[in-house]
Simulated assay, not measured.
Amino acid sequence: MTFTQLEIFVRVAELKGFTSAASRLSITQSAVSHAIKALEAELGVELINRHQSTLELTAVGERLVLRARSILGLAETMRQEAGDARGMKRGTLRIGSFGPTSSVKLLPLILDAYRQAYPGIEVHIDEGRDREVVQWLQDRRIDVGFVVLPDERFDTFPIAEDQMVALVPIHHALASKADVTLKELCPDPFIMTEAGSAHLVAHMFNAAKLVPNTRYHSTQLLSTLAMVERGDGVTILAELALPAERGKVGYVKKPLRPRVKRSVGLALLDERQASPATQAFIKIALKLKRQGLLRFTADL
């Protein structure tokens, strides 16, 4: 068993294909196939079910791919710790990011400072929904991820705070109010966004013992905003997720009463096993937070 075989196995599992894994690793498809067959022969089990149109891991393959990611992660940490003594000139950092909050507002600032400090570190960014980032952390697919806090499953570091706000069409009856309550939003068709913090919105209504009139589920922020502008319904979003207002828009942003804060932070599976590249990324993010550079909203 070699690190190369394990890396190929992990890439095939993530990309669900021999061809795509070969392209990502810049090797031939036959080399990928040979590595998987050799690994299966050594372990004495079938890791991948090969179908004509799809590829999926076997039950034992699902378990062993987690082990493979862990082994590769520890190996990368060892390489980086050795490299750290030489100024951390090389290494890899895998980041998970969700929605505009982290991908547009937070990550670019942190990444800019990180690249200046460590130009030799290769950075990979996976973008998805907030719950996908959590799953990637648990699967060891990424080293560090942006998450909505609190989350006791991980070691976490708060870096930004904003508030949840209601969005209503510009001519809606609630548009003239200074703030709105959850109860006032319940009669209207509600647009539940899946772009981020959906579980927080659901928790807010549950805690208030209210049930929104959910008519729509949207996975894209821009689609959600367009639906509110058309008058299809109302919604609740995190303020950091909203795009910068340029010109006239067809919706109005209203604070909730009472205010509902949201905290966003960086999370990793185990701080004790974090690579130097991961530790440096977190350190830079926390420094920017202390300097007040990760603030985008008024005081709550």
Rank of each mutant, 00 (worst) to 15 (best):
93 L>A: 03
99 G>I: 00
23 S>H: 12
40 E>S: 01
42 E>A: 11
63 R>A: 14
111 L>W: 04
107 L>Q: 06
92 T>H: 10
58 T>G: 05
6 L>G: 00
92 T>M: 05
21 A>T: 07
78 M>S: 11
100 P>I: 00
54 T>N: 10
35 A>T: 02
39 L>I: 00
74 L>D: 12
19 T>C: 02
88 M>A: 10
23 S>C: 03
58 T>I: 10
56 E>N: 14
112 D>E: 15
16 K>P: 04
28 T>I: 07
76 E>R: 15
48 I>G: 00
119 P>V: 07
87 G>V: 09
91 G>A: 05
15 L>K: 13
60 V>D: 08
110 I>N: 02
7 E>W: 00
74 L>C: 02
70 S>N: 07
80 Q>S: 08
17 G>K: 07
103 S>C: 07
40 E>W: 02
65 V>K: 07
118 Y>P: 01
14 E>N: 11
37 K>Y: 02
50 R>L: 09
88 M>E: 03
7 E>R: 14
58 T>L: 07
39 L>Q: 05
97 S>T: 15
85 A>R: 15
7 E>K: 11
50 R>K: 14
40 E>D: 03
93 L>P: 03
91 G>V: 06
42 E>Q: 15
88 M>S: 10
95 I>R: 00
28 T>M: 09
63 R>D: 13
53 S>C: 03
25 L>K: 07
100 P>F: 01
90 R>S: 14
28 T>P: 00
9 F>C: 07
94 R>Y: 04
32 V>R: 05
96 G>V: 06
85 A>L: 15
71 I>Q: 03
22 A>S: 11
6 L>I: 01
53 S>E: 10
61 G>I: 01
92 T>V: 15
11 R>D: 05
91 G>E: 04
16 K>I: 05
88 M>F: 08
71 I>T: 12
52 Q>H: 14
46 E>F: 00
106 L>A: 03
33 S>M: 11
21 A>D: 06
103 S>T: 15
27 I>C: 13
68 A>L: 08
72 L>D: 01
118 Y>S: 01
10 V>T: 14
18 F>Q: 09
21 A>S: 14
37 K>E: 09
88 M>L: 15
72 L>F: 04
35 A>G: 06
114 Y>Q: 02
23 S>W: 03
9 F>P: 02
60 V>R: 12
76 E>S: 14
